[in-house]
């Protein structure tokens, strides 16, 4: 087995082992490992940074959404209030107009009734005269006697009074 026979090569093998291993150690420790470490760290930072950013954006979006919902709710509330206000106003106006109209109407009714009453009493007055005349004419024609004015008006009044 050359591993145990070539004893004269041992020193050389150990020498080159130390040299090559030393070179590799230097290259790893000074170049490759710091670079790999920085790459991995950078990626870690980047990923966690991105996650943070995403979280922040999500929060912002949620805030915007809640603001929007609040604005909608406010607008709805104010619309309802405005609607109620104008409805109240309309109701008040119409009630007022109704009241005005009612008083006007009752005034007119009163005036008309007064007129009717006046006309009626006037008519009644005329009826009395006519009735007196008719009664006087009728009695004179039928009985041939004249009745006194006082008697006539008394009789007519009685007759009208019964009717009324």
């Amino acid at each position: 087995m050359p591993q145990f026979e070539q004893i004269d090569t041992f020193v050389g093998q150990i020498f080159w082992l130390i040299v090559t291993f030393g070179v590799l150690y230097f290259l790893m420790a000074k170049v490759a490992l710091p670079r790999l470490a920085s790459i991995l760290e950078e990626r870690e930072n980047r990923v966690s940074g991105d996650l943070e950013k995403a979280e922040r954006l999500k929060q912002e979006a949620e805030e915007v959404l809640s603001d929007y919902q609040k604005a909608i709710a406010d607008a709805r509330a104010s619309a309802v209030a405005a609607l109620k206000e104008s409805a109240d106003e309309i109701a008040a106006t119409s009630a007022k107009r109704q009241a005005e109209f009612d008083t006007q109407l009752s005034e007119k009714v009163q005036i008309a009734e007064d007129k009717i009453n006046a006309a009626r009493s006037e008519a009644m007055g005329h009826i009395k005269d006519v009735a007196k005349d008719v009664a006087a004419a009728a009695t004179s024609k039928l009985l041939g006697t004249d009745v006194t004015d006082a008697k006539l008006s008394k009789a007519v009044d009685e007759a009208l009074g019964e009717q009324n």
């Binding site: 004269d8 090569t9 050389g12 093998q13 080159w16 090559t20 590799l24 290259l27």
Partner: peptide, 19 residues
């Protein structure tokens, strides 16, 4: 005797390829 042997060659090659 620290001659550059085939063993040393492949040690160096290993270092080179790892790097």
């Amino acid at each position: 005797d620290i001659s550059f042997t085939n063993s040393a060659l492949f040690m160096s090659l290993s270092v080179l390829l790892v790097t």
